[in-house]
Amino acid sequence: MSHPISNTTHYPFLRQNPWFSGLPSGLQNGLIAASETCRLRDGDMLFSQGDALPEDGGVFFAVLDGNLKFSNLREDGREAILAVLEPGNWFGEITA
């Protein structure tokens, strides 16, 4: 379930991230205004390989709490863990 992100709740946490805090304040505020929170339970998938990007051309995620595992299935059907992201990590993709 997604909810608008809160300036007062998440902004102080996001400011601790060197990448985010290095952005001009107007851009920081714009990212916050365009953001939503999404709460996942253990085992939930945020997205799957091959999912289409939003029509506006990009998406970025910040891990606020817990860990997020990136993995894929190998040819033999076993899971290969590619990375585990902790709070404060960012990832995303944009198109030109």
Rank of each mutant, 00 (worst) to 15 (best):
M1T: 06
M1H: 14
S2D: 12
H3E: 15
H3M: 13
S6L: 09
T8H: 14
F13D: 04
F13P: 00
L14V: 03
P18A: 06
W19I: 13
F20C: 06
G22D: 11
L23V: 06
S25P: 03
S25I: 11
S25K: 13
G26S: 12
L27V: 10
L27M: 15
N29P: 00
N29Y: 10
L31Q: 10
L31I: 15
A33S: 12
A33D: 14
A34R: 11
A34P: 00
T37R: 01
R39S: 14
R39C: 12
L40T: 02
R41Y: 10
G43C: 01
G43W: 04
M45G: 00
L46Q: 09
L46I: 02
G50T: 03
G50M: 02
G50S: 04
A52Y: 09
A52C: 05
L53Q: 02
E55N: 05
G57P: 04
A62V: 02
V63D: 05
V63K: 09
D65K: 12
G66I: 03
N67Q: 14
N67P: 00
L68Q: 02
K69I: 06
S71C: 05
N72Q: 07
N72F: 09
N72V: 01
L73R: 09
L73C: 02
R74H: 03
R74D: 06
R74G: 09
D76C: 05
G77M: 01
G77Y: 03
R78K: 14
A80H: 14
I81H: 02
A83V: 00
V84C: 08
V84A: 03
V84K: 07
V84T: 08
L85K: 11
L85C: 10
G88Y: 04
G88D: 04
N89L: 07
W90H: 06
W90R: 00
G92M: 06
T95K: 11
A96I: 04
